[in-house]
């Protein structure tokens, strides 16, 4: 079995995001970029399948600007066999464009399973997995928290509202990974040293024009402080009233 993992570089979850002067993009200076955390689950799962002797190769494909090479190095350090970066000129592209450039590359490769995150934490569209399935004409299972593969078929446990379901499908298929699937490993230092020397193959991506464009970005409203209702037992009725009527959680 051959596995392809799609990974994206995103701003760190703790980064202090500033909106640029154009009000349409973020300021990159001072931002730490990391591997999309959901893609990390995908890499870990692919490596685990390989370690279990069920896959012969794991290839990670990244997309985005030149700096995205770094996350591919992380993937190498974690244990993937090879990487390729589909380099785009634009810093940010929409999901459909991304799915199309990924599909164009993947069509030239042989594979049995594609793994990627359920979403990228920067744009959060949750579209690339399903779109890729459509473009490659293969089944897509989303939000997977447990995965079993046996070469020709896969069985996946996926989150649904209020519970879970277990689904089966034939390979090749695409699976989008959700938290709970595994604990991504910390790359071994030996792996990090190897990855430092790795020459990342960079291919220009044939990206078409975006169909969706960002027109405005804005900060969320500043969080208002908490409210002190009172102290001790006498405050309870007022608190319950507020929770019921204002917060509507009771």
């Amino acid at each position: 079995m051959k596995i392809i993992v799609c990974v994206k570089q995103v701003p760190d979850t703790e980064a202090n995001i500033k909106i640029g002067a154009d009000n349409k993009s973020i300021v990159e200076a001072g931002i730490k970029f990391i591997i999309n955390p959901f893609d990390e689950f995908a890499i870990e799962e692919a490596i685990k399948i390989k370690e279990a002797g069920k896959a012969e190769s794991v290839i990670a494909i990244g997309w985005g600007p030149e700096r995205s090479q770094e996350v591919l190095r992380t993937a190498v350090a974690m244990g993937v066999d090879d990487v390729v970066l589909l380099k785009t000129d634009a810093v940010s592209i929409d999901s459909y464009t991304a799915a199309k450039i990924l599909a164009a590359k993947i069509k030239t490769m042989s594979y049995d399973l594609i793994l990627t995150g359920k979403e990228t934490i920067d744009d959060g569209n949750m579209q690339i997995g399903p779109m890729l399935g459509e473009l490659l004409n293969i089944p897509c299972v989303t939000l997977v928290t447990k995965l079993d593969v046996d070469g020709a078929n896969l069985s996946a446990k996926r989150e649904i509202e209020g519970g879970y379901e277990v689904v089966e499908t034939a390979c090749p298929a695409i699976v989008t990974c959700q938290k709970g699937l595994n604990e991504p490993r910390y790359p071994s230092i030996r792996g990090v040293m190897l990855a430092k020397k790795k020459v990342v193959a960079v291919e220009p991506a044939a990206a078409e024009a975006d169909q969706i464009t960002v027109t405005t970005m804005a900060y969320p409203a500043a969080r208002s402080g908490g409210k002190v209702v009172g102290q001790g037992a006498e405050a309870v009725p007022a608190l319950v009233k507020l929770l019921h009527e204002e917060a509507r959680v009771l």
Binding site: E183, Y186, P187, S188, R190, G191
Partner: peptide, 9 residues
């Protein structure tokens, strides 16, 4: 830690 990647999670 560095060679075998075995350390408390």
């Amino acid at each position: 830690m560095m060679m075998e990647n075995k350390f408390p999670q």
